[in-house]
Design a protein around this nucleic acid. Structure first.
Lengths: 209, 209
DNA sequence: TAGATTGTTAATCGATTAACAATC
DNA sequence: TAGATTGTTAATCGATTAACAATC
């Protein structure tokens, strides 16, 4: 298989394309052009063509892209036959909300285990999943393929849990804490702390005057 | 007052600086250098100096930055005397988790009202706030200064509610839906749909092989 | 064939890094 | 004074856009 490195800016646009194509009925609309996509998404036309060429490479001059092929190609970038397995570590307000959310399965993700350290939460069932004691994290990860973790613990424990996740061989962390995690290079961290996002939004608003 | 436009890349780093400075006791450490900050945050040294010069402009050669001054300067970029007012529209799993979260006040944000359209939710009290009927959105916004909205409604209603928020004069939307919102230019949208974030993380992992 | 659309090469734009002068 | 550190100017790097040839 060929692994070409996709620039980060392109990667961040892939969900836009995936979500856009999701809303197209490929029985009605067989093909679509970069021109149309760029208009709908408010992106440059050449940008879209370059993106799609780089990540899918299945455009046909005069025709455009076969919707079903393009959709499958984009989907396959995220997960192959198997869905990506995700654990949620820290079943507080946000962690629980995510655990209850049903939308992951449709998008190639499988929440396979929930962890917390609080005895009041361990054993509780959320969305048909029993909350596991975080002291079982290492043994669980030894016996199951875990691709990614959602980190939604208290900030005080964030780095410690992050270290444990690294040692477990997890490849990526979606970090809901406001802690800047120190990790080895082979682990990808994506910071999505809500307060930070609100700050950025507020700054953009002030900047927009 | 001088409004200089801050590049988007710089804006996205501001929360890093704010969160970093939060952990420094300015009674113990009076001043700090860009060199130290850049090392701790894993950023280029000149980048940090340029950022801080652009957004704060209070560095002193040989000394660095006075921690308390820098902190105050960064904080003031987000909100002045008044906190930024935020409403949460859509009290589903995520909306409720955010409504219950206590960390906004400390960071210059004030959740001033919750809205939902579900009679089962309207009137419920969450974190000392009664959920308001979304049909009161317009009248509420006429009588209160609302700076930003967290949009966590079902995707089917996202664009419609977004239009109503626009008409209410709201300046920014933190969009938790996977819908690409169409808005007039004076409104800033920041997309933070969790599944999209997981997709980006998965793509970065695959790219990192 | 002509038109629509792709993919590529060159030009532009913006962001980061390197080099360095200014200064407390 | 010398060293540390800032802020600025120039160089580099990467991403987007413009121009255009290829093609179904």
């Amino acid at each position: 298989m060929v692994y070409k490195t996709i620039p980060k800016t392109v990667i961040e646009r892939v969900p836009l394309y995936i979500n856009y194509l999701k809303n197209i009925d490929c029985n009605k609309v067989k093909t679509i052009s970069a021109t149309i996509i760029s208009q709908e998404l408010g992106l440059g036309e050449v940008l879209v063509r370059k993106d799609l060429n780089m990540i899918a490479g299945i455009g046909k001059p005069k025709i455009g892209y076969y919707v079903s092929d393009l959709r499958e190609k984009l989907r396959s970038l995220i997960s192959t036959e198997k869905k990506k397995t995700v654990i949620i570590v820290g079943i507080g307000k946000i962690g629980e909300a995510l655990a209850r959310y049903k939308g992951f399965g449709l998008n190639g993700f499988d929440i396979i285990q929930l962890f917390d350290s609080d005895v009041g939460k361990i054993g509780r069932v959320i969305n048909q999943q029993k909350v596991n004691d975080i002291s079982n994290l290492e043994s669980y990860c030894q016996n199951h393929q875990v691709d990614m973790a959602v980190l939604s613990v208290d900030s005080e424990h964030a780095q410690d849990v992050c270290n444990r996740l690294s040692n477990c061989g997890i490849k990526g962390i979606l970090n809901f804490t406001n802690v800047l995690l120190i990790t080895p290079n082979q682990i990808i961290v994506r910071n999505v702390d809500i307060v930070s996002q609100l700050m950025i939004l507020a700054l953009e608003i002030n900047n927009n005057k």
